[in-house]
Design a protein around this nucleic acid. Structure first.
Length: 615
DNA sequence: CGAATTTGACCGGCGC
DNA sequence: GCGCCGGTCAAATTCG
């Protein structure tokens, strides 16, 4: 029987079957062409095997709706007497969408054992003869027809029907049953129609959502390209204004913004690609074509689309026409190289603390300690243990000049979900890495980019962070000590200070994981500005709420700061808002206001942070 | 006793 | 090629 659709209620007790039980439709089935039979089959099992589902094992006593006259159609517990026709194959599914209902009338009306109990095959089980004394029901149909028909064969019925004094009684009874069944059939047709309508509605909604999503993605793509163009334009201007010595193009090695972070492979990859695309009209065309292709593909879900899109993009990046060609770097043959270079991008945080290391919300395990050259203080090596295989490392070392300053260097991106308290540093490192891996970096020397970043990232600052282009690894140094001497950190040449007035010198002591968050958000925004994306996008819907209430805990403060920044497209204003949120956050654990002399008490906020975090 | 830390050995990159 | 140096490994040790 080729029919248009049907419902399977195999696994669902009949009593709980639709529509009593809300049917959860997968709004985004993997097969997104339409919500057709195959896609919904998992839920409703629409398909060719659609027949009336009957509960043939159900005992009569278990039927709560026997003789119900309710107008509800929630229960369709067709009581079946198997002995009606033992040879008949059992029908397990109900056909709610019979296309050939005429066949029932024409072909099956006379198929039942009793000639008088003509009914569609789906329903003919519902009728049985009197030969079986196991049940007294002539029609054990637990279907509310809405007609208030009493279909139960009561004793009086039995006496009347079986009364031999009425020769036409059988025929009359059969006719009445036929009417009942026909009425039921009509009702089921209506129900069938209703279900079809519902299915169409869901399908329509799904298609609308799909279209909307595609349009949003396309719009985002266009915005990224436009932003990249603006960024490149500014970059050119910057390039013309810089007369200093050229910095070794170390950033260029990092042009491969591939998915070093396995947690966000698609985004980072597509992000890195977007920049490259923006630099190359040809690639832009490819991207557009790819996107259009992706857009046109409707057989798979969007996640699959995205993955496929990214996969194809990464295939394109492999050839020498990609980043490698632009950067005079040996052709990266595999992702390992990209990951290796990705890991080299570092974020260094300088904070005053007497604690062995700052608390950043992550769990770390020390795996080594070395005496670094030029520093009497040993350098400790930690790796993230929040997830197996997390590539994030960090180094902790005290500053040789000022041993109250703890220098923590982060490297890599987390590949696991992070607690709120850890998002700060994670976002810092991730954003910094992305920024350093930005394709825009590859188009200019590091100094120029650093200058540009100085102006674009923190236009209101004066001594907060450093971007080092000459270090063994591209490093963004965030100075939370607020050193008044902008040259203090410039041990290596070609470093550019990111000043940041107004931050108390011991500010880092208090929310030591907070400023990195701000800076990380800055980098993150910068990355977005340069066409990059990050998977750690803050939720604007949450941001508004969080930024409005005073942060009772550091994590909330972090969230508020993140939210404030993320919610505000104007980064400068957002940064100011975030700072205000932190400083004016009235965090009882915040000792900024009580200790502003730059010294670090033994029980600094690091301890407080530690108590708030997982240490 | 399991987990975390310590610490010497080892490895690879880089400069000479 | 050699040595230096940064980084990592892994066995030993310590800790809870």
């Amino acid at each position: 029987m080729a029919r248009g659709g049907g419902l399977s209620i195999d696994s669902d007790p009949i009593g709980s079957f639709f529509p009593h039980k809300p049917v959860v439709l997968n709004s985004f089935p993997e097969d997104n062409t339409t919500i057709n039979n195959s896609s919904v089959q998992h839920k409703w099992k629409l398909g060719p095997n659609m027949d009336t589902t009957v509960n043939r094992n159900r005992s009569q006593s278990s039927s709560p709706n026997t003789n119900t006259t309710s107008s509800s159609i929630s229960t369709i517990p067709f009581q079946v007497n198997r002995t009606c026709d033992e040879n008949r194959p059992h029908i397990d599914e109900m056909d709610f969408f019979p296309n050939k209902t005429d066949d029932y009338d024409n072909n099956h009306m006379n198929n039942c054992a009793s000639a008088s109990t003509s009914a569609p095959p789906s329903l003919d089980h519902l009728v049985h003869t009197h030969d079986h004394s196991s049940t007294t029901n002539i029609l054990d149909l637990e279907v509310d027809t809405g007609l208030n028909l009493l279909t139960t064969n009561t004793s009086s019925d039995h006496s009347m029907v079986d009364d031999e004094t009425y020769p036409d009684s059988k025929e009359k009874r059969a006719k009445s049953e036929m009417f009942v069944l026909q009425a039921e059939l009509e009702r089921m047709k209506a129900e069938n129609h209703r279900l079809k309508s519902m299915l169409d509605q869901v399908n329509t909604n799904y298609n609308a959502l799909q279209t909307h999503l595609v349009s949003l993605m396309q719009q985002q793509k266009e915005e990224e390209v436009a932003e990249q163009q603006v960024f490149d334009r500014k970059l050119d201007e910057e390039k013309q204004s810089v007369n200093g010595t050229l910095v070794p193009r170390q950033f260029m090695d990092l042009g491969l913004a591939t998915n070093a972070d396995s947690s966000e492979p698609s985004l980072s990859s597509s992000a890195g690609r977007s920049q490259d695309l923006s630099k190359s009209p040809k690639n832009n065309e490819v991207a557009s074509k790819e996107f259009e292709t992706k857009k046109s593909v409707s057989d798979n879900g969007f996640d699959q689309d995205k993955k496929e899109f990214v996969r194809r993009i990464e295939k394109e990046d492999s050839p020498s026409e990609g980043v490698a060609a632009n950067n005079n770097v040996p052709n990266p043959k595999n992702v390992d190289h990209a990951e290796a270079t990705m890991r080299k991008a570092r974020v260094s945080v300088r904070a005053r603390s007497e604690a062995p290391m700052i608390t950043d919300g992550c769990q770390w395990r020390k795996y080594g300690q070395k005496m670094a050259k030029g520093n009497p203080c040993p350098r400790a090596y930690y790796r993230c243990t929040m997830a197996a295989g997390c590539p994030v490392r960090k180094q902790v070392q005290r500053c040789a000049e000022d041993r109250t300053i703890l220098v923590t260097t982060y490297e890599g991106n987390h590949n696991h979900p992070l607690p709120p308290a850890a998002i700060a540093m994670a976002q810092t490192t991730s954003s910094a890495a992305k920024m350093l891996l930005s394709g825009s970096m590859s188009s200019a020397d590091g100094l120029m980019n650093a200058n540009f970043l100085t102006r674009t990232l923190l236009p209101c600052s004066s001594s907060m962070a450093t971007i080092s282009a000459s270090a063994p690894f591209p490093t963004v140094t965030l100075d939370l000590t607020h050193s008044p001497n902008p040259l203090q950190l410039s041990k290596s040449q070609n470093q550019v200070q990111f000043p940041f007035p107004g931050i108390p010198q011991n500010f880092a002591n208090s929310p030591s994981s907070l400023l990195p968050q701000i800076f990380g958000q800055a980098l993150y925004n910068q990355s977005k500005f340069s066409g990059l994306q990050t998977s750690q996008d803050a939720d604007p819907s949450q941001s508004s709420n969080q930024s409005q209430r005073p942060p009772p805990h550091l994590a909330d403060t972090v969230s508020a700061a993140t939210a404030a920044i993320a919610a505000d497209p104007n980064f400068t204003a957002a940064l100011a808002a975030a700072i205000t949120s932190i400083i004016g956050g009235s965090n009882p654990n915040n000792n900024i206001s009580t200790n502003n002399n730059g010294t670090t008490p033994n029980n600094t906020s690091n301890g407080n942070i530690a108590s708030n975090n997982n240490k």
